[in-house]
């Protein structure tokens, strides 16, 4: 693939991801029916008034689809924000203070060794099921990786003259981190933002599908796949439509994130050239 075509593909993927997010967030206002209203027989095929048919309870699949994206997007973004906040903070502190390094990073390293779904299962068993548990588990799964990358990048930038003179001026480390370190490591740290967020979408969806997160009758894409499984042969749209929505969201967020990272890198190199 040529660079021009790759760039075009990245932009298109980013646009689709943005559109999906908008639809997911604004969907409830566009939906013709309430997601819990019974509008017909269970597993009725697509027809007038119900473009995607009905689900196992006879609710409109199209309306549930428009309602069900919000939870996926909001939970994944919340997990992403939490992961970058905690991981970034740990990495910055570990990178800037040699003495805090071991204290902060060893527990993080331990976390790497634990499979994320085990963390989720333990949390769900301990504190009960719910959205907060899913967000926490998805974030914890990503904190070690982010912290390690941020720490390594910070170590490299931390020996630069502009960081040293700022510290020699007696500026607080938070200020130095915000002005000198973060802007210069952002491109590197966000290189894999696309794959991380899409992995979080997948994890949130997986947790909901397994019933560890949101509970019926909430409209949620992953829950829809789970609850309509039985009728797959009868009314495939009730399963395929939400499954497809999750897949497209995951893939386009991934590609769009890559494009964003590439742009950040380009911006850095032009400034530094």
């Amino acid at each position: 693939m040529t660079r021009g075509r790759r760039r075009w593909a990245g932009r298109a993927a980013g646009a689709v991801a943005a559109l999906l997010v908008v639809v997911a967030v604004a969907g409830p206002w566009l939906a013709p029916h309430d997601p819990t209203d019974v509008v017909g027989l269970p597993f009725a095929p697509p027809g007038a008034g119900q473009p995607l048919g009905t689900d196992y309870l006879g609710a409109d699949v199209a309306s549930r689809l428009l309602h069900g994206g919000r939870t996926v997007v909001v939970l994944a973004l919340a997990a992403g924000a939490l992961a970058y906040l905690v991981g970034g903070g740990l990495g910055l502190a570990a990178g800037l203070f040699g003495r805090a390094d071991t204290v902060l990073m060893r527990p993080v390293d331990v976390l790497i060794a634990v499979p994320p779904f085990l963390v989720l299962a333990v949390l769900a068993a301990g504190t009960g099921r719910g959205a907060a548990v899913v967000v926490l588990a998805a974030a914890l799964a990503n904190v070690p990786g982010i912290a390690r990358v941020v720490r390594a990048a910070t170590l490299e930038v931390g020996v630069r003259g502009y960081v040293e003179v700022a510290l020699a001026r007696g500026e607080t480390w938070i200020r130095v981190a915000g002005r000198d370190v973060l802007p210069n490591i952002a491109a590197l740290v966000l290189t894999d933002v696309g794959s991380r967020i899409s992995a979080m979408v997948a994890m949130v969806a997986g947790a909901n599908f397994l019933g560890l997160g949101l509970q019926p009758p909430t409209a949620d894409w992953a829950l829809m796949v789970a609850e309509n499984r039985a009728g797959l042969a009868l009314q495939p749209w009730a399963v395929l439509a939400p499954a497809l929505a999750i897949a497209v969201l995951t893939i386009t967020v991934n590609l769009g994130g890559d494009e964003l990272a590439a742009r950040l890198r380009r911006a850095t190199t032009t400034v530094a050239a």
Binding site: R160, G161, Y162, E164, V165, R179, P183, N184, T268, A272
Partner: peptide
């Protein structure tokens, strides 16, 4: 007490 370093390109923040 202020300090100036050898490598000028590394001692200025490229983003500011």
């Amino acid at each position: 007490i202020q300090i100036v370093f050898q490598s000028a390109s590394e001692s200025l923040n490229p983003r500011r």
